[in-house]
Simulated assay, not measured.
Amino acid sequence: MAETELRQLLTSLQFSDSAFPSGFYTMSHSLEGYSQAKLVRRGDVFGLLADLLVHSVGPGDATALAVAHRAAQGEDWDAVQDADQRLFASKLNAEMRKASVRSGHQMIDMAREVVGGAGIEEYARRVRARETPGCQPVATAVVYAASGLETEKAVASDLFAFAVSFVGAGLRLRLTDHKDAQVVLHDIAPVIEQVAIDAAERDLDDLGGCAPVADIMSAQHERAEARLFAS
Rank of each mutant, 00 (worst) to 15 (best):
A139P: 11
R128Q: 15
V101M: 15
L149E: 14
A154K: 13
A163E: 07
Q136Y: 11
I108H: 01
A94V: 11
E122T: 12
R130C: 14
Q182L: 00
K91A: 12
S103E: 08
A99I: 04
D177R: 10
V115S: 04
R128K: 07
A146S: 10
E95F: 02
H178D: 13
A124E: 00
T132E: 01
D177E: 13
G117K: 15
A139L: 09
T151K: 05
G119R: 14
G104A: 06
D177N: 13
G168F: 08
T132I: 05
D109R: 14
G134M: 08
V155W: 15
S100E: 03
D158E: 01
A161Q: 10
M96V: 05
A181E: 06
Y123W: 03
D180E: 06
K153V: 11
F160C: 03
A111P: 02
D180A: 01
R130I: 13
A181F: 01
G119S: 13
A154M: 07
A124F: 05
G104D: 05
N93D: 08
R102G: 10
G104Q: 04
E152A: 10
T151V: 04
S157W: 07
A139V: 08
V164N: 04
S90Q: 06
V114I: 15
S147Y: 05
A181L: 03
G119T: 15
D177C: 13
V143F: 13
L171W: 07
R174K: 04
V167E: 12
S103W: 07
A124P: 04
L173Q: 04
F162K: 06
D109L: 10
L173E: 02
K91W: 03
A94L: 08
R172L: 02
D109K: 14
K98W: 09
